[in-house]
């Protein structure tokens, strides 16, 4: 029992132990820390461990017996002269393009809608609710509906295009080059309401007198957005863009529901690519190595992004 109470002591030996009252927050945090370990850290470490194993179908039921592969899996994943490495690089570039498009479009739509619904008008609540519907629907249900609508022969999209005489032969939306844009449209449709929600909340904290002052100085709507809204939303945008980036980059459900386990090469998003390489080809070692590489990339992006916004924020304040 004595040891149990002492382990909460901070590492500096000179400091006196915390008074009883100040231990309470740490105790309250304990369940969260344990769950975090169980749910996040341990599976992640297991994934890193598997990436060093030659875990193929031969060891599926007894994966502890899988041989140590060293960095072999990483060599395969990063060898750009090999088919696996080339395919991974292709998938990576597709995913980058997809993420940037979805991120910028979702943010633009969300921002526009948030600004337009900022001032009260009749029916504003209804409009806001309608905007949020795509985000509130279950992913599978809404994306499978898109899948039906985007079918080449029976889909609603092509029916409408043909009825309006916009096209003579119905295009394919789920295979070939168009599949990339189908995926972007569906992802933006799903993502922008979240940006809208967060930005709407952010706008509530901007005092109305700032707009009045700007208006008195002669700023129009665009001027107000540029000189009042955007600077004051900086902290919100900082987090929002990062979250949207990570979500979009890692999204599995949307592309998987839209295309199944064999997505078209033009829309070969990295999360499905890794899934294919582990579950479909039964090579969990290579799949895990790819996951670890993806994790490192996302850590790098996040770290650089946070460092950049922090220094630029500091400069502004100085």
């Amino acid at each position: 029992m004595e040891a149990d109470s002492r382990w909460l002591t901070p590492p500096e030996p000179n400091k006196p132990s915390l008074p009883r009252r100040e231990r309470l927050p740490y105790l309250l945090l304990l369940p969260a820390v344990v769950l975090e370990l169980l749910i996040h850290i341990i599976p992640m470490l297991a994934g890193v461990g598997i990436s060093f194993l030659g875990l193929t179908e031969f060891y599926l039921s007894n994966w502890r017996a899988a041989p140590f592969a060293g960095t072999g899996n990483y060599a395969i994943a990063l060898n750009l002269n090999g088919a696996t490495g080339q395919a991974l690089l292709h998938s990576f570039t597709v995913t980058i393009g997809y993420t940037l498009l979805v991120l910028s479009l979702s943010w633009t739509f969300g921002m526009t809608a948030a600004v337009l619904t900022q001032r009260p008008f009749r029916g504003r609540g209804l409009v806001r609710t309608v905007f949020l519907i795509p985000f509130a629907l279950p992913v599978f249900a809404s994306v499978i509906t898109w899948n039906f609508m985007l079918q080449q022969d029976t889909g609603a999209v092509n029916r409408v295009l043909l009825a309006l005489h916009l096209t003579r032969s119905p295009p394919f939306w789920l295979i070939g080059p168009n599949s990339f844009f189908s995926l972007v449209i569906v992802a933006v449709w799903r993502t922008w309401p979240f940006a809208f929600l967060i930005l709407t909340a952010g706008l509530q904290s901007i005092p109305a007198d700032l707009y009045e002052a700007a208006a008195l100085d002669g700023a129009g709507i665009l001027g107000q957005v540029r000189h009042v809204t955007l600077p004051l939303l900086r902290p919100v945008n900082r987090v929002l863009l990062l979250v949207l980036f990570l979500w979009t980059f890692n999204d599995f459900t949307t592309p998987f529901t839209l295309f199944g386990s064999a997505p078209p090469t033009q829309a070969d998003i990295i999360s499905i690519h890794i899934y294919e390489n582990s579950f479909v080809s039964w090579n969990f070692g290579t799949g895990s190595a790819m996951s670890v590489l993806l994790l490192l990339f996302l850590l790098l992006v996040t770290g650089v992004y946070l460092a950049v916004v922090r220094t630029s924020g500091a400069e502004r304040r100085a």
């Binding site: 295979i175 090469t265 294919e276 080809s281 039964w282």
Partner: peptide, 23 residues
Amino acid sequence: PQESNFETTVGTAIIHLYADAAT
């Protein structure tokens, strides 16, 4: 033993080739 891998990789390659031909 690699039969199921063969089915998946070759079957998927043909899916993409059909998609190319169709589009």
